[in-house]
Simulated scan of single mutants.
Amino acid sequence: MGSRSKPVKSISLYIRVKDTIIKQIQEKKWKPNAMIPTENELMKEFDVSRTTIRQAISILVQEGILERQQGKGTIVKPQLFVGSLSKLKGFAEEAREKGMFPSSKLLLVTMSRDFPYEKSILQVPMDEEILVIERLRFANQTPIAIERSFWPKKIGELLVCRDLNQSTFYEILEENNIFLKHAKEKISAVNATLFEADLLGIRGGQAMLKMERLSFGNEDQPIEFTTTKFSSEKYTYHIDLMR
């Protein structure tokens, strides 16, 4: 029994260190591009062993939060948006929670009778219009993602009269007593088109994360279908798993 308790304690320590470091980065105590403290300084700050510090730092490097630079050391990787899959949130909500300033550039807004696939997902009659909104999403003025969302006409009419560069969709819905209950998400890898690459300031053909989300409202009816393509250099998911 005694031999099994040691690994559990070790795991909890480096996870605690890792989570505290993430919090310090979010609170701007560790600045982008800045060198992180030395191992000795971190050992003293967290009162843990060198092995624990190295485990925590190694995970943060793997997750893209820190970056090792040859001949220099380890720095805080700049402009990285760390998303979470633990709760249903919009882009702006997630950005604010990470201590970042969210903004958008409207690319397209239209009521359309096209998009049969998206209509079928939303359970909208084929002869009915849906609202289509495309936006370029920024965090701290850095382009992070291209978002295309589809909404049934009744909900779309609530959105289309607002400033869609500044508004938070979910807040508008809640003001109208429409609340998201749950969502289904699918994540896949895609390559950036030249148009997408130009918008995001990346190379054509570069790997991107594609997230498809179908959200359900008050009466378990689908009310939003969104496809978001994230620059993989600027965005990563952080998932906590428990057993």
Rank of each mutant, 00 (worst) to 15 (best):
3 S>F: 09
3 S>L: 06
4 R>F: 03
5 S>H: 04
6 K>A: 05
7 P>L: 05
8 V>G: 02
8 V>Q: 12
10 S>L: 12
10 S>F: 09
11 I>G: 00
14 Y>T: 00
15 I>L: 15
17 V>T: 10
18 K>V: 06
21 I>N: 02
21 I>L: 14
22 I>T: 08
23 K>H: 09
28 K>P: 03
31 K>S: 08
32 P>K: 09
33 N>H: 07
34 A>D: 14
34 A>P: 00
34 A>W: 06
38 T>I: 07
39 E>G: 14
41 E>Y: 02
45 E>L: 13
45 E>G: 00
47 D>A: 11
50 R>I: 13
51 T>N: 09
53 I>L: 06
53 I>T: 04
54 R>D: 08
54 R>P: 01
55 Q>C: 10
57 I>E: 05
58 S>C: 02
62 Q>D: 15
65 I>W: 06
65 I>H: 05
66 L>Y: 11
69 Q>V: 15
70 Q>Y: 13
72 K>E: 14
79 Q>Y: 14
81 F>G: 11
82 V>H: 04
83 G>T: 05
87 K>S: 14
89 K>V: 12
90 G>K: 07
94 E>H: 12
97 E>G: 06
101 F>E: 13
101 F>Q: 14
103 S>R: 08
110 T>A: 08
111 M>F: 15
114 D>A: 08
118 E>C: 02
118 E>I: 02
123 Q>Y: 00
125 P>M: 00
125 P>K: 01
130 I>M: 03
135 R>E: 06
135 R>Y: 05
137 R>M: 13
138 F>A: 04
144 I>Q: 14
144 I>C: 05
146 I>D: 03
146 I>W: 05
149 S>A: 15
151 W>T: 01
151 W>V: 03
152 P>K: 05
152 P>G: 01
154 K>A: 14
154 K>P: 00
157 E>W: 02
161 C>R: 13
165 N>F: 04
168 T>M: 12
171 E>F: 12
172 I>M: 07
173 L>W: 12
177 N>P: 00
177 N>Q: 13
179 F>T: 14
181 K>I: 12
182 H>D: 12
182 H>M: 11
183 A>H: 11
187 I>K: 13
187 I>T: 11
188 S>T: 14
189 A>C: 06
193 T>D: 05
193 T>R: 04
193 T>G: 07
195 F>T: 08
198 D>T: 13
198 D>N: 13
199 L>W: 06
203 R>V: 03
205 G>Y: 07
205 G>A: 06
205 G>N: 04
207 A>G: 05
213 R>A: 04
214 L>R: 04
215 S>A: 15
217 G>V: 05
221 Q>V: 06
222 P>C: 04
222 P>F: 07
224 E>G: 00
224 E>C: 10
226 T>Y: 01
233 E>M: 08
235 Y>N: 02
235 Y>I: 01
236 T>L: 02
238 H>N: 11
239 I>R: 07
241 L>K: 10
